[in-house]
Simulated assay, not measured.
Amino acid sequence: MVIPTLGPFHILHPRYNGVTVAELVRAHQPEKIFLASYGPEELAAQRWRDQNEISFFHVLPWAESAGLEVEPLDAQSGLKAEAELFREALRQYPKGQQLLSKVEALEQGLHWVVSTPRTPEDFAQEPVLQALRGYHQGHVQAFGEGPATGFRRQRMAEVAERLRGFGGCAVVLVDVLEYPLLLEYLPQEQRRLPGAHTPTEPERQRSVLDRAWQLSDADDWAVLLQQLRDVEGPEALYCAAQIYLAAGQLEDAFELLEELVHTDFQHPAYLPGYTLARYGQLADVMGQRDKALRAYRAVLGLSWVPGEAREIAQAGQRTPFRLERA
């Protein structure tokens, strides 16, 4: 089965969130998981974390617990960066900016794919596939195949060739931009796509957490807090604390984080950094500077931490955090 991944955009899709990808993988009962858009060095360095490859935070721990091998296939993954370098170079010059403006419509088409709530079966439907093909073809027509596209076609052709040698049951995870190109090169028997899928309870709970991470004034915060009480795991406590903080209920937020930091909150891998950074900030606001400093040091002592949490901790070490008054 070939499953497209949406990077950070999974958070926008209640029925195609990061846990959905993990559930699709699990249901397929693969002998092996292949990563089409990552190379061995990237996987070894776990660079996907800094790229906010949301689904990997759920798929890879499950694969490890199930004893499944995860094999990265993109031997030329370093070429991906060429696309952004190409754009950055064009932005430096007026003519380059004009060229980029000509492909703005392509970005709108891509936005329609990754921002409109999707289901797994949508990615087997022609409108979505056509929009993704159009995005790539438009860039090729404007700039040629190569640096402007991150050499996607060349890289996916090589990945497909490597997959031909595997005859067992496997799942291939591939970046959504490279998904239609990989499909072109795969033989029909390896081109199984996601079909109709009934969301599981873990997926439903993930959708509640994702909604909380995107908290806005348009949400019913009381309802969201009630939904979070039914969600298993430490992340629900963190999200509830965030809602209390946004509502100005600082003591309630601090109490929840106090509870959270005395539990096992190691998963997902981004949670320890965010939790300790926010805990430090609230400790500062509550006048508990020593506790805040311990939290900030704990953030910086983690083997990996999201960039935002690291910046919070570094700033908090220099100056006690204070809430901005409206």
Rank of each mutant, 00 (worst) to 15 (best):
V2T: 02
P4Q: 03
G7I: 07
F9G: 02
R15K: 14
Y16D: 05
N17K: 09
E31Y: 01
G39N: 07
L43W: 09
N52T: 14
S55K: 01
S55F: 02
E64C: 10
L68H: 04
P72M: 06
A75H: 09
G78F: 09
L79G: 07
A81M: 08
A83D: 03
F86P: 02
R87T: 15
E88L: 05
E88W: 00
E88I: 02
Q92E: 15
Y93P: 00
Q98N: 04
G109V: 07
G109N: 12
W112C: 06
W112D: 13
W112S: 12
P117C: 10
P117R: 07
F123P: 00
Q125D: 07
Q137K: 12
G150I: 01
R153M: 05
Q154L: 06
E161K: 02
R162Y: 02
L163Y: 02
F166Y: 10
E178H: 08
Y185A: 09
Q188T: 13
P199C: 11
P202F: 08
V208W: 00
D210N: 12
D217V: 15
D219V: 04
D220V: 05
A222C: 04
A222H: 07
A222P: 00
L224G: 04
E232H: 11
P234W: 06
L237N: 01
Q242E: 11
I243P: 00
E251I: 15
E251V: 15
E251K: 15
E251P: 01
E255D: 13
L257K: 04
V261R: 03
H267E: 15
Y270I: 11
Y274H: 14
Y279Q: 09
A283T: 05
D284N: 14
M286A: 13
D290A: 15
A298P: 00
L300P: 03
G316H: 05
P320I: 11
